[in-house]
Design a protein around this nucleic acid. Sequence first.
DNA 1: AGCTCATGGCGAG
DNA 2: TCGCCCTGAGCTG
Length: 269
Amino acid sequence: MPEGHTIHRLAADHRARFAGSPVRVSSPQRKFAESAARLDGRVLTDTDAHGKHLFLGFDGPEWVHIHLGLFGKLGFGTTPAPPPTDTVRLRLVNASDYADLRGPTTCALITEDEKRAIHARLGPDPLREDEDGERAWLRISRSRVTVAALLMDQKVVAGVGNVYRAEVLFRHGIDPYRPGKDLTRSEWDAIWADLGALMREGVRNNRIDTVRPEHLPEAMGRPARVDDHGGEVYVYRRARQACHICATEIRTADLAARNLFWCPACQRR
DNA sequence: AGCTCATGGCGAG
DNA sequence: TCGCCCTGAGCTG
């Protein structure tokens, strides 16, 4: 289940397992069959991630472009690989490992030029070393759109999804409905830096944790929480439950077809 | 068995 | 703003 940290982790995992030697490439589901046949037996040379886009580079000028969307998953295992089920869009296998891709929004063979075009339309990614938040600030500081919507716009910031959006706004006490242009420079700088730190930890742990140590259940004298998406969070999917800091009921609302979560007391205009 | 929902994004209108 | 695409878990019966 993918926000940007998942994709960067997958890029590293593919590199570790497959880079540098020939890979058997197949598409059991047949939707990627022609391209898989072209790649079969070639060497995986490089991997890359920008926001929620994953790129697998093979010998020659082509890349596999993968976008998991809301449902897509990549699962790893060690050989021998079991018979693929009929939902496996792409399978990579070498002597020791296999990877199965299911349910992606995108799995396509693209050229270097097409890859460049994808980078060009994405905003800065807090997980890419060559980026800073300046480009994002230029758009945010001139926009009447709410900061909640701007954070989810991949042309503004690449890699932030519904969990990081909700959590970073909570951590900075910002009302999700505040217009981008009402954000101060120092607020944005803090948000950008925090996204980088949170998402790097997300890559390391392969899950999203956003609760500061002093607010963890044990530090607050409460029983440990179990969050069904697998991380410790303040507001995400906690509608109508008590805020961990102030006990106010967490609110939820629809915003651009996604669920928004926030604490109306901790996050004020 | 069938429904709902989910960490996304696109194009039509 | 809506409908649509992709899969699977967790319900309800």
